[in-house]
Design a protein around this nucleic acid. Structure first.
Lengths: 308, 308
DNA sequence: GAGGGGGCATACGCTCAGCGTATGGCCGGT
DNA sequence: ACCGGCCATACGCTGAGCGTATGCCCCCTC
């Protein structure tokens, strides 16, 4: 409104007026603007002189709006509120990001998701991921996250569930380790170092059993308390680790890990992505589910020759 | 609203923003505030920096509001209009004056209305006129004025419209120029000076074409950026200008301008006075409409011998 | 009635926010 | 390729807006 600039003596006149009207005194308004009382007094006087009418009656108890002052104050209050709401809204909309909470294992995040985080942020520029990280077997309630990875829906029936990846396991090591020590099956007794994950919840013999002969269990072993560290040690050439394909698919595709045996363990079970029913199922959550699934399927296709 | 003062970097930020948004360029907004273009440019940049977002996209054609800018502009426009209405109302109530906003061309105001302003004030002593001045072709929204002059109602269907004057154009110059150089049609090639109005929105060849033979377009010419100045130059004897009768009727009646040719262009279109439906249609607005129309009809009758 | 507290108004002098000028870069039209 | 018109920025200037000091007024309490 071009006219407004011409109707007031300066841009700050109305801000000063509004503050004085609301606070009821020059001193209180001055404190709000971090100026001194004479500054507000002059500002109001300037506005009144410009308009040719009194907006306040002055008294020992401060300022009292005249009838014209009340009319103007109502308008200014409404007008400023309209502007302030819009300002607040556009600033909030601009900085507002979707926060999505994911419950995932440390190994998965470290060796599968982080390597493709750049692509994730490209595809989801307004999403801010928050992780509930689970060291070891995927477990525990996830009622307070948007998306969780778990083995089977049975853990928490009251949820949406979507199949994500089959549970397929194979021994993996670095290419350098393989060249130096040969595959897991060959070689003399105890020639290998097995990198174990010290997880009381997981029967690793259950997985190792089908992969090595009985006497092979005499191999040296190193145990770690986090599966992500187990895989890192394998990549560093320190031994052979169990490789859950859902976690090592990226590393196998990149060649930072290679199969250490021709044997595989397919348990018949599957990892699922789950969303609790008690939490809003946001579009962005579904989009991320789809993205994760698509990426996993692409990885699996890419390393099919290594896992069958 | 105390918050508003904290959301903007300075009190004048929003005034600058609103003007730039409405005018579509820093230069045009600067002219409205009687400052230079860099001043507006800095003001907008300061506001954007403070808010942390872009309000305009910059280009070779000026400023275009972003989506956030549009949101803010709507709010600021409404908010400021609310304040301005109250300000006008209390000033009018105090002085018992009616403020009437008119959207008219600079040429019309300068050469048709101002010459009869004394008579206007005699007939409307309590009316305080405010002008939205349009340099060049009458155009643009007029939702925030009481009365606008436009070519056809189609521009903004949601309005009252009353026919005001036909679009009739003839070449005009001063009497002294005519005595010295003769009419537009006669004389050697290139003997005249054409006073042009540099308005990209208006195809002046469309009007000059029927008024002069093809070779006459070789006349020397001077271009001005405002039609009011074009007419002033013609009155000063500097050449021949196109005279829209709706603007030059007073000057023709007074003899400060005379026809420079026997040819006329009647486009068949008509100027209208319009009032937006979204704004109160005040009695004083209708009275001014009638006054303007009566004055124009009297002018046209007075110069009928010159325009047919 | 006197005194004190708290309010607003004004004179004087200071300073930096906002300005203009100069200039450069970019874009679109010819 | 050239030109006109737009916006952005560096530099220096200045007066609008500020604080301080002070005076005056009103209201309340003793």
């Amino acid at each position: 409104m071009a006219g407004l600039g011409r109707l007031i003596p300066s841009a700050r006149s109305l801000l000063v007026f509004e503050a004085a009207a609301r606070c009821g005194s020059c001193g209180a308004a001055a404190r709000e603007f971090n100026v001194t009382q004479p500054s507000v007094s002059r500002g109001i006087a300037q506005l009144e002189a410009h308009l040719g009418l009194a907006l306040f009656n002055r008294g020992a108890r401060g300022l009292v709006l005249t009838e014209e002052g009340k009319t103007l104050y109502r308008a200014v209050n409404e007008g400023f509120e309209r502007v302030e709401s819009a300002l607040a809204a556009i600033v909030a909309a601009r900085t507002q990001k979707h926060t999505v909470e994911l419950s995932l294992s440390t190994g998965f995040v470290a060796h599968w998701l982080i390597p493709r985080m750049q692509r994730f942020h490209r595809d989801f520029p307004t999403v801010d991921l928050r992780f509930q990280l689970i060291s070891g077997t995927l477990r525990g309630p996830f009622g307070n996250v948007d998306l969780a990875m778990r083995m089977q829906p049975g853990e928490d029936a009251d949820c949406h569930a979507w199949k994500f990846a089959p549970e397929l396991v194979l021994p993996v090591c670095s290419a350098a380790y393989l060249r130096e020590h040969g595959p897991l099956e060959g070689g003399p007794e105890g020639a290998h170092t097995l990198l174990l994950f010290a997880d009381p919840l997981q029967d690793f013999a259950h997985y190792w059993g089908p992969l090595v002969s009985a006497h092979a269990l005499s191999h040296a072993s190193i145990a770690f308390s986090d599966y992500a560290v187990v895989l890192q040690a394998a990549m560093n050439g320190q031994g052979i680790a169990l490789g859950w394909v859902s976690v090592v698919s990226h590393a196998l595709g990149e060649g930072t890990l290679v199969p250490a045996s021709s044997r595989r363990v397919a348990t018949g079970r599957a990892y699922h992505l789950m969303a609790p029913r008690g939490r809003p199922l946001k579009d962005v959550t579904l989009a991320i589910r789809d993205w994760l699934t698509t990426e996993m399927q692409a990885d699996i296709a890419r390393i099919r020759h290594l896992t069958t």
